[in-house]
Amino acid sequence: MNRSKDIIRHIKSLVPKDKQVRIMNVCGSHEHTIAFSGMRSLMPENLEIIPGPGCPVCVCPESDIINAIELSKRDDVILVTYGDMLRVPSVKGSIRADGKNYKMISSPFEAIEIAKDNPDKRIVFFSIGFETTTAPTAAIIEMGVPENLSILSSHRLTPTIMEILVKDTELGIDGFIAPGHVSAIVGANAWNVFSEKYRIPTVVAGFEAENLLLGIAEILKQLKEGKPATGNVYAGVVKAEGNVQAQKIMDKFFEVADVNWRGIGNIPGSGLELRVEYSKKDTKKVFGLAEVKESKIPGCICGNIILGKAYPNACKLFKKVCTPRTPKGPCMVSMEGSCNIWFKAG
């Protein structure tokens, strides 16, 4: 307790008196800690902590969800995916409410078990998320997956979206709290571009409130000294080079692609698709899936929330018709979604 108080005092001494400082976190678990610890209530008024694109199911394009729902309706298919993904709404409903043959998994290895247990079915693993979930999916392909299993890849790249955001002058980001789990895979060095090219301090932090406070203090110190760098206050877990083995197998099976982000649109080089050599494992190719045009959710501003351009309570649906029980937009579904977190943290 006292240590947190000390760091907060330190933060207050480091914040410039005369200007607004905007620090963005890009990880749902970070936002969770920030909201649930009441951290914003302790920060100086001119220091904003903005939740950014940290929620994998939130950015998953509607097209992939609709394709997943349709696939699950086929008698020869079992769709498997992570729990949160089942509840994300689309114009055609959600997988849970409107799909037919689907199973929830918490690890890609369960997808293999389901494929083995159902040799007469075609198993579609709807694999979503940032680098943290891409790595285990690559790992099961490396180990060898059953013939009847294919992968509907909806993976997204964290550094790419962060680079889009840093270029947005309207947002005016002064510093990034880099995501702890993603950093464990890609390595702290993956963020060097932000300090070197854009002069934006970027500090890897863990998930305890105290560790996040340390990260914020480190960003402020770099800003004050005018020496932006890649910092790491989570060095016990995150190495500079990251998990090289994971990076190798991700690169072996996946290639960078221009992909859609829900509520945002197409971002060049921001996603991962299976390489053409592995087309037999690529659900989109195996089933000949077509891209479905995204429909707008009336009133929903998830896209702006993901980009850090609006806080959840700026949405007119928030807490009124959009609640964790009746989510209208993707950000209200997952424990990593900013709207869901703000709803629960009060």
Binding site: K5, A35, S41, A209, T323
Partner: peptide, 17 residues
């Protein structure tokens, strides 16, 4: 209201879910 470990405060409401 909850006073958090780090000394922040947040509002606790009834759970809807």
């Amino acid at each position: 209201r909850l006073k958090t470990i780090i000394g922040g405060e947040r509002v606790l409401d009834m759970l809807e879910e």
